[in-house]
Amino acid sequence: MKPPKKVFLYQSGVSLIELMISITIGVVILGAILAVYSATSSTGKQSETATRMSEDAAVAMNYMAGYIRMAGFSFPQANVPVNTAVSGTGTVQVNDSNFAGAGVRGCDAGFSNPTVSTTLSLTCNSGTGTAAISVRFEGDAYNTGPSGVNPTDCLSQAVNAATSSDFNGGPTYSLVESRFYVKTGANSGTPELYCGGNGGGSNFVAQPIMQYVESLVFTYGVADDVSSQVVTSYLTAAGVDLLPGSVDQRWSRVVSVKVCLVMRSEMPDQNTPGSYINCAGNSVASTDRFLRKAFRSVVTLRNRGALSS
């Protein structure tokens, strides 16, 4: 009887070198996938942040524009011709409405006394900083958000004070005043757009209305005199203050306002320091990795008409 044949089983596998090569290739592929995912995720996050900044800027811009557009508005008296007369160093408009003063007053570096009760007593900070603006107009339940039967300021506070008419001193009306500026929030520690108004007996105590507004810049389109509707130049607030005449005469020449605000992202969403174009049109470094973007608009004062050159 023949002995059974011996069967030899040979084990097959990979060598250590082949295993190391496979692991290396896998790590490279995984790293590439992670890099693509990280870049896509970062780009998507930045895109979402930019969209949110644009939406917030639109809300803030539209809110301020609504008040700036009304600056100087007052209901004209019936059967009173609009005439002009020369007084002092400039042409002034003869009163034909309850409110005849300047509807807008600004400072390039902010107000040094933002809660002062009288607009003509507002003073400006020296040096550089974010701008501030104050607007005044005759309000009613239709051109503001009503609070009962009274108009309201920018904080929806009822303006109860009765102001004597500039036309003949007899009837009274509601003079609405709102002041917009940027400062760091006491609770949030972030830059915020604030507004203070003359309603509710608050004495212009401001409250934040939009977070992450980092700066404001206003330039003013002025006419040759208060009777003209044609913008002949755009000036800073300091430039308007250098015009001849009284404060009311200078600022009554404003026909339109260029508004620029810079929004900042909530979180430092950039992987590396970047840059942005500021309100002056210059490229500015953003070393803290926060996204920033400037938004612009031009607002024509409703009472002044709108012709520019």
Results as ranks from 00 to 15, higher is better:
residue 276 Y to E: 03
residue 164 S to A: 14
residue 39 A to T: 13
residue 297 S to N: 15
residue 153 D to A: 02
residue 7 V to I: 15
residue 79 N to M: 11
residue 25 I to F: 15
residue 260 C to M: 12
residue 49 T to P: 00
residue 282 N to F: 07
residue 12 S to N: 04
residue 259 V to Y: 04
residue 227 S to D: 11
residue 155 L to I: 06
residue 77 Q to R: 10
residue 7 V to L: 11
residue 13 G to C: 02
residue 299 V to P: 03
residue 69 R to K: 14
residue 188 S to K: 06
residue 209 I to R: 08
residue 7 V to C: 04
residue 31 G to H: 03
residue 282 N to W: 04
residue 40 T to R: 10
residue 201 G to Q: 04
residue 243 L to G: 08
residue 225 D to H: 13
residue 271 N to P: 05
residue 297 S to M: 12
residue 247 V to I: 13
residue 229 Q to W: 00
residue 50 A to M: 11
residue 172 T to K: 05
residue 26 G to F: 10
residue 166 D to F: 02
residue 211 Q to S: 15
residue 292 R to D: 10
residue 72 G to F: 03
residue 42 S to F: 00
residue 105 R to K: 09
residue 186 A to G: 09
residue 234 Y to R: 11
residue 161 A to E: 12
residue 13 G to S: 10
residue 249 Q to E: 14
residue 117 S to R: 09
residue 39 A to K: 08
residue 129 G to R: 06
residue 294 A to S: 15
residue 263 M to E: 07
residue 61 M to H: 02
residue 194 Y to G: 01
residue 157 Q to A: 12
residue 146 P to K: 14
residue 7 V to R: 10
residue 234 Y to G: 01
residue 308 S to F: 01
residue 263 M to H: 10
residue 82 V to E: 13
residue 25 I to T: 14
residue 81 P to W: 05
residue 52 R to K: 11
residue 9 L to S: 11
residue 102 A to S: 15
residue 17 I to L: 14
residue 290 F to V: 06
residue 150 N to G: 01
residue 137 F to K: 10
